[in-house]
């Protein structure tokens, strides 16, 4: 087992790629799901960012998506093992339905993150608490540092996803 700060940084990278790939596949940067997400996106664009990145930040704020699923899967595996992670997926689905969201992205992200975290813990290289701290660091890089640069990064990734997979306008 490595030292704990190095493990947390590697876990942050794994969590970042997990929730970003699932959010991009489920088309979160395409449009705002509720009117509050659209308002946040317009304010971010007014401050100098890109509109598509603002839509994804607004969607993360206003309904539990794959990032919340990854965090709660880490909490579930830390507290109760594999059944805890699947129970957390059920809770994320209920939370999505409360917030007027279809709930595909959150539930899918929670289930994949459950198996990733459980496999990493079973392999003996990581502890489950590394993934909780890693997810907090990963959400800090998207939402917490600079909304302008984060929205430009997300808009660039969205353009790449449109080129690779069909189905976005």
């Amino acid at each position: 087992m490595l030292d704990e700060p190095i493990r947390i940084l590697i876990a942050a990278l794994i969590c970042w790629f997990n929730f970003m790939i699932i959010d991009l596949i489920f088309k979160l940067p395409e449009r705002g799901g509720v009117s509050g997400a659209t308002a946040i996106a317009q304010e971010v664009e007014k401050g100098g960012g890109k509109l598509n990145g603002g839509y994804m930040m607004g969607n993360i704020v206003s309904s539990p998506d794959a990032s919340a699923g990854t965090l709660l899967a880490g909490c579930g595996v830390y507290c109760a093992g594999l059944p805890g992670g699947l129970f957390a997926a059920l809770l994320v689905y209920i939370g999505n339905r409360i917030c007027y969201d279809p709930g595909y992205a959150g539930t899918t992200g929670c289930i994949t993150a459950t198996f990733i975290v459980y496999g990493a813990v079973q392999s003996g290289w990581f502890a489950a608490s590394d993934f909780i701290a890693g997810m907090v660091i990963a959400i800090l890089t998207i939402q917490g540092l600079s909304s302008v640069h984060a929205s430009r990064l997300i808009a660039w990734l969205w353009k790449i996803r449109c080129r690779l997979l069909r189905g976005c306008t």
């Binding site: 509050g36 309904s63 919340a68 965090l71 129970f87 994320v92 917030c99």
Partner: peptide, 20 residues
């Protein structure tokens, strides 16, 4: 797990209501 999920969903619902 239930407490953490309840807190997170509640906070998200609060942000959603404020923004809407």
């Amino acid at each position: 797990i239930a407490a953490a999920a309840a807190y997170f969903v509640g906070s998200t619902l609060e942000s959603n209501a404020i923004a809407s």
